[in-house]
């Protein structure tokens, strides 16, 4: 693969080299269309011995263990673990609310998607990316080969941040479109007035292994501004008048903590892997250290 095709403005080359040492971990074994680098529940053809079983007619005689036949005079068939490819789906929130912060949640999300996508392609996983908001829903059709990684970067680089969040309909559309089981990584700020429950349910309905990554801007968690303010919703344009004093600030902080906590509880209860991160947290540390520590990558 030519070097130029893997160059990206999103991620540093050094980071990319480190990513090549890692792979995504699926705690549920999933079946793929073609043999890949993932263990499958199905016994098949590979170099890794799994078990023996009695030979029955129709079995491939190439897998008969002739050494055992010589000692026991019985035909046993060697079973090998079959390696399959893994479907990895990245869902990136591109609504207007993601544009806040420095770096913005959108930029941070794109980098995170690029890193995870690159990691998947390096391990010959099947990668599909969906960017969603009420304005547009763009797809990166599944790719599997690492030398197609430029398509991933190009796709992410062309994305823009606009429209409102509509998690339920976006996730439902995704579930309908991608029926094959796999790992779904949902990257969003989860600021949807209609809630996140329907969206996560839709993803679980297809028995995907779902990872929810909750992005938050530091200013969103602990606002630095204060005084007499007219707060303007970046997506809906809705206005709320507040006098932001220390009392209200404290109430808001608690409200944010409660929101994060309820999302986390919801995810835990349904086998969804949840992780929240602030955009001032280094993305390299997030992927190489934090995600590794929680077992999402290895």
């Amino acid at each position: 693969m030519p070097e130029s095709t893997t160059k990206s403005t999103l991620l540093e080359p050094e980071f990319l080299r480190k990513l090549e040492q890692l792979s995504l971990v699926s705690r549920k074994l999933v079946s793929g269309k073609i043999r890949g680098e993932r263990r499958s529940k199905k016994k098949g053809i590979s170099v890794d011995f799994a078990d023996y079983r009695n030979y029955v007619r129709g079995d491939d005689i190439r897998f008969i263990d002739w050494n055992i036949f010589g000692r026991l005079d019985k035909l046993f068939l060697k079973l090998f673990e079959e390696e399959e490819d893994l479907s990895v789906y990245l869902l990136l929130d591109t609504s207007k609310s993601m544009s806040h912060g420095d770096p913005s949640k959108f930029e941070y999300g794109k980098k995170l998607a690029a890193a995870l996508g690159y990691l998947a392609l390096t391990n010959y996983d099947r990668l599909a990316v969906t960017a969603f908001s009420t304005v547009h829903t763009e797809q990166l059709e599944p790719i599997r080969i690492k030398n197609r990684v430029w398509r991933l970067f190009e796709y992410l680089g062309n994305l823009s941040c606009e429209g409102e969040t509509d998690l339920p309909s976006s996730c439902k559309d995704f579930a309908i479109r991608y029926a094959r089981r796999g790992i779904v990584v949902l990257i969003s700020d989860f600021l949807d007035p209609t809630g996140y429950e329907e969206a996560l349910k839709a993803l679980l309905s297809r028995r995907h292994e779902v990872f929810a990554i909750h992005l938050m801007d530091p200013e969103e968690v602990d606002p630095k501004y204060g005084g007499h303010l007219k707060l303007l919703d970046s997506e809906t344009g809705e206005e709320v008048e507040v006098t932001l004093n220390s009392g209200l600030r404290e109430v808001y902080r608690k409200k944010v903590a409660a929101y994060v906590s309820s999302l986390q509880d919801y995810c835990s209860a349904r086998g969804i892997y949840y992780m929240s991160t602030r955009t001032d947290f280094e993305i390299e540390r997030l992927v190489l250290d934090y995600l590794r520590r929680v077992g999402f990558v290895r």
Binding site: K105, P193, D233, S234, V240, V256, Y259
Partner: peptide
Amino acid sequence: KRKKQTVPSVLLWRQSLEDY
């Protein structure tokens, strides 16, 4: 006269204000 401040969402602000 209040200063305008754009936030990602007023969802949590409105709930906070109601509490406060």
